[in-house]
């Protein structure tokens, strides 16, 4: 019971963090047809910007400023990087973002050093909020949960209830028609790219001090965000949401299960001392998202909620 409660709560927080990253990526992907390899790099930039800004202004100002800065960086990348490459096709765009991810990681290493920076949870939130089954639960995680839910509601409102959201939705499926109606579609693309990057930056701001802020953090989470987008389905925020939570729960539950293969397949004669029998479920946790990705692409290539195959 205790394990399940904690796994549920942590899985929810991790899943919402993943959704914050993948919502922007899904929008960018379905609009431009480009899986942005550098998306997680913007997440990393968010964490580092917040760390540096936080030294001068404190955490609360950085919480707002850092995502905006990341968004501006994203807009610049779209305007002067991605847009010229667009003429060379999707593969060239994908490769451009792949190279960009390399470059951003190296720039971060040069600017902030190769080891983790001491980006700390703000002291105002560094206390145990409540006790659950005798263990204390940190307030910062609940703060992450609140920010994620705020973001979720804000995004939903923006896309479904405002005019700009209407135009974005139209541009997702019918960019030419939107352009004929007099909207500047490239600028909408740039806005969406910037907003997606800003969301990733926000995830970095609140996730960087919860996890760890180091140059390899983008490489660690980037492939998992891809999994979310592919499993959720092209162009579907709902799908990305479900897939984020699914992967969040899957990973946290797998880590909390204390069992190995021999416990499950012992009836087949598998010994706990043998190499296969020794593998624990917890050690499989990092592999599970990729297993899900491969199975999903093989069995249902359009993803959970996708409207079309990509």
């Amino acid at each position: 019971m205790e394990t399940i409660a904690f796994a549920l709560l942590n899985g929810l927080i991790y899943g919402l963090l993943l959704f914050m990253l993948s919502s922007g990526l899904t929008l960018i992907f379905s609009m431009m047809g480009v899986l942005n390899f550098a998306h997680a790099s913007f997440y990393m930039l968010g964490a580092y910007f917040a760390f540096t800004l936080g030294n001068f202004t404190g955490f609360w100002v950085a919480l707002f400023l850092a995502p905006i800065l990341v968004g501006l960086a994203g807009a610049a990348v779209e305007r002067w990087g991605l847009r010229p490459v667009h003429a060379n096709g999707h593969v060239a765009e994908l490769l451009f973002t792949f190279g960009l991810a390399y470059v951003i990681e190296e720039i971060v290493k040069i600017t902030w050093g190769k080891v983790a920076v001491p980006y700390q949870v703000p002291s105002a939130l560094d206390f145990p909020l409540f006790e659950l089954f005798g263990s204390q639960y940190p307030a910062y995680r609940i703060f992450m949960l609140l920010i994620s839910i705020l973001m979720l509601v804000g995004l939903w409102y923006l896309l479904k209830r405002t005019r700009i959201g209407l135009i974005i939705q139209a541009a997702l499926t019918h960019p030419h028609m939107v352009s004929h109606l007099g909207h500047n579609v490239p600028r909408i693309f740039m806005l969406v790219f910037a907003a997606g990057c800003a969301l990733a930056g926000l995830a970095g701001v609140i996730g960087g001090n919860y996890l760890v802020t180091e140059p390899s953090m983008a490489f660690a989470i980037g492939p998992i965000v891809f999994v979310v987008v592919v499993v959720g389905g092209m162009g579907s925020l709902e799908g990305a949401f479900i897939a984020s939570l699914l992967i969040g729960f899957l990973q946290t539950f797998a880590i909390s299960i204390d069992a190995n293969f021999a416990d499950f397949f012992g009836w087949l004669g598998l010994q706990a001392t043998s190499e296969v029998g020794r593998i624990t479920i917890a050690s499989l946790a990092p592999m599970l998202p990729f297993l899900l990705l491969v199975l999903m692409l093989m069995l249902r290539p359009r993803g959970l909620m996708g409207e079309r195959e990509f």
């Binding site: 047809g33 899986l35 999707h90 593969v91 994908l94 492939p223 891809f226 999994v227 592919v230 593998i279 050690s283 990092p286 592999m287 990729f290 297993l291 990705l293 491969v294 692409l297 093989m298 290539p301 195959e309 990509f310």
Partner: peptide, 27 residues
């Protein structure tokens, strides 16, 4: 199973399989 489509699905399957096999390598 990887070769049904070119483009992004192929790229993603290759990425997933590389992660799986690299992880299995340590296991």
């Amino acid at each position: 199973p990887s070769c049904r489509n070119a483009g992004v699905p192929f790229a993603m399957i290759s990425l997933g399989i590389a992660e799986l096999i690299a992880a299995a390598g340590f296991m």
